[in-house]
Design a protein around this nucleic acid. Sequence first.
RNA 1: GGGUGUAUAGCUCAGCGGGAGAGCACUACCUUGACAUGGUAGGGGUCACAGGUUCAAUCCCUGUUACACCCA
Length: 947
Amino acid sequence: MLEKTYEPSAVEARIYEAWQQAGAFKAGAGAKPGAETFSIVIPPPNVTGSLHIGHALNNTIQDILIRFERMRGKDVLWQPGTDHAGIATQMIVERKLMEQQQPSRRELGRDEFLKRVWAWKAESGGTILNQLKRLGASADWSRERFTMDEGLSEAVRKVFVGLYEKGLIYRAKRLVNWHPGLETAVSDLEVENIETNGKMWHLRYPIEGSEETITVATTRPETMLGDLAVAVHPDDERYQHLIGKMVVLPIVGRRIPIIADTYADPELGSGAVKITPAHDFNDFEVGQRHGLKPLNIFTTQARVNANAPAAYRGLDRFEARKKILVELEGLGVLVWVDDKKIMVPYDEKTKQVIIEPFLTDQWFVKADVLAEPALRSVREGRTKFVPKSYENTYYAWMENIKPWTISRQLWWGHQIPAWYGPRLNTDPEFNNGAAGPRVFVGDSEEAVIRQAEAYYGRAVDMFRDGLNSTEFVKAFHDFETTQRDRTSAQVWTLRKQKDPFAEMSDSRVPLHRDEDVLDTWFSSALWPFSTMGWPEDTPELRKYYPTDVLVTGFDIIFFWVARMMMTALEFTGVEPFHTVYMHALVRDEKGQKMSKTKGNVIDPLNLIDEYGADATRFTLAAMAAQGRDMRLAIARVEGYRNFVTKLWNAARFLEMNGCVRKEGYAPWRNQLALNKWIVGEACRAIAAVTRALDEYKFNEAANAAYEFVWGQFCDWYLELAKPIFSGEDEAAKAETQATAAYILDQILKLLHPFMPFVTEELWAETGKSGPARDKLLIISEWPDLRGLENKEADAELQWLITLVTGIRSVRQEMNVPAGAKVQLVVVGAGLDTGTRVEAHLPALTRLARLERVDYSDIVPKDSAQIVIGEATFVLPLAGVIDIFVERARLAKDVDKLEDEIDKIDKKLNNPQFVSKAPEEVIEEQKQRREEAVTRRDRLKEALDRLS
RNA sequence: GGGUGUAUAGCUCAGCGGGAGAGCACUACCUUGACAUGGUAGGGGUCACAGGUUCAAUCCCUGUUACACCCA
């Protein structure tokens, strides 16, 4: 016997274990022979992260699709894994070191620090995956991958080398977005521009050899220390005579030119702008056009460096600003201050640190080249976005894609497989100072050594500890010495004669490895194929790649989706998935983003603890309409928890009434209209859920299932079955018991993708009697009852439901006590109505609380009347009902019908409508009119009888 | 500044060229043999505003307003 309520906490862990034991999550579990494949790769969560509500939604949707397709007999793989999340993880470990008062990252050194990170990964890395398991995620855990696994790292190196060799990855000195806290470059996407109340300071610069001044405006006065020019528009009348003159930069004393460049906007401020090429992206370009060599005034921590006057060195950028303003004011240079809204670039993650444009050597990907085929894939429909509107977002970004900065000055991540060595004097670029060291890129040290030996014509030494290790410095110095001498054949000959050991110091060339690591998204970009074994040609890769659907939030469409498209097309030649399903972001019930600081975070694990995984999942699915965000209200979760209980109790009711599954039961052999009807309803519900899931309309799927289970099966079928169960007709009872058990099976299947735990538990419970179940629900077949609708049964049950509802409605409105039994008189019944009344007499009596049912040709006086079809159903309530109220009730209905008839008549009397509207629309209107007229006439008659 | 999206019941949201819907909330009644995490009945909407297209507009088009998000 089932308990009165379902206890999720008592069941979920056991069920999950049973699935694992049965190998139900394994790739291909339950697949029909020769089945189509269906694969999804999980968006890998941060390895040291924990589950938030967005993950819960994301993975619920994936699990619904996976369970659905698995039940449909496809060969399914859900590929799980985690991401090393370079910046986030490194920050966490650094913070922990600080909290525990241990040596800092730099004090520990690279190797020791990385050991600590791996230890932390080992300690906390399983958390989020365990949380996904609590949600019921049926991923193939035996195939779990991590972005820094050896295989995936090999894929990263292969891709890096491949792109490098094609010229699609290059190293360059550029202005990049610099994070002064982490002291690393970040990509454009990792910067969020936030509108802030700022100021515009107007500075009057003196002009050399003149009494004139030129006024420039800036939001960042401290950067004046790095000013290299003042620009005016070439057509600006006001400044023609100043172009070419020199400004003496206050405080600094540097002479800088006044240049003509269209970047200066004559309309803005004074029309003259200061140019600081090392600290502003626009200024950098201006500087390049005019051959200005950028002057960097900041350290990697955004403190003023030695390129500035001594008084400012070491000051933080904001301290420097204060000091400069004081000094400029004292000099009379600062002439005016405005308030101004300015966009300040913040670190996108924490929104705490202001990002600084900073001039450094970095690695870049020529994203524009890779974007071309990725754009075509979507334009030509080989990959589709759901909802489709995101395709425009994708186009807009991809069409204007900028070079992708992929190097990070971090330690946790994939170290860039590049080595640097000195240039030979025979190298064509030897005298080009800007060319920098000679770079060797290879997917292994052996490959690099081979290349380097070919270049140098002799052995090389590999220095892994970086540019500053004493061994490297010494070796490099030795090489440079010999290298210099070799520039002249004469000197070289002399040297060899003087120094018999010259040969030795000449013999090995020191190479050092690039210390930087790659952007985390570089490895994520390979996820769909790297997890399946690429670059090896594995069976998984052949079978499950390309994948089918990518399920993700729209916030990482650029970070991740676009980049997967690019790398997959470049390296595998196919789109990594045919569909990208973008779900909404989960917000709180007030529509605000959830954040720890606001304290409005809904922890999915709390929801699971309190309401169960099934209710949590169902809520997320039911709210997953295709939109930008969804607001999660606890009341909804509660409601779906109630739904779980409802299902549980329906099963309990069946159990109590001997509804056992029957061997050889065939739904098409049902005799009773009630059973024919519920089979048809199930058929429609299954079709609706299936179609909705095929279209990724999870809310529609959930609602259709919910409506059928609660609104049809529980509210009507079970209620109507009650009199049969307690009745004498054994044949009817047997058929209904078998049908009820059969429908429950269909329901369990239908709900399983949404509510896997309670359905699996009930599947087991109901499997204890009747024919033995041959497998778990998770790998059972998705239901399909097509062709079992029955029009007559539908009409009959619809009639019954209308009648019961009608009587109940009258009873309530007439304030008939709920317990009181009343008489029903059927007037004007034809053969159909008579048969139906007789067939459903017990149900009717019970549900409408009737004392007895009589037939008559005369309507009793002062009665409430219900018109259905040709018959009028009369509740003789003389003395009980208020005639006035009953008249009002009927009159209201008549009014409604009159309105409708008027509306339809207007249409039908319009010759335009009749001539232009489609035939079936006209026909439908006529039919609706006829029904309305009949019903109105009946109601009018009823009304007349009341007076 | 550019772009995208949204505006429907008190709330959260579906829907859609031809009858305005759901869940929650609300009101009233009901502990009837699965379920009070329940049942029954009920109230509630100029479908943001203004034009246009159409025989017909909540739905399509244009504009306005408000809000949200993305990009610079």
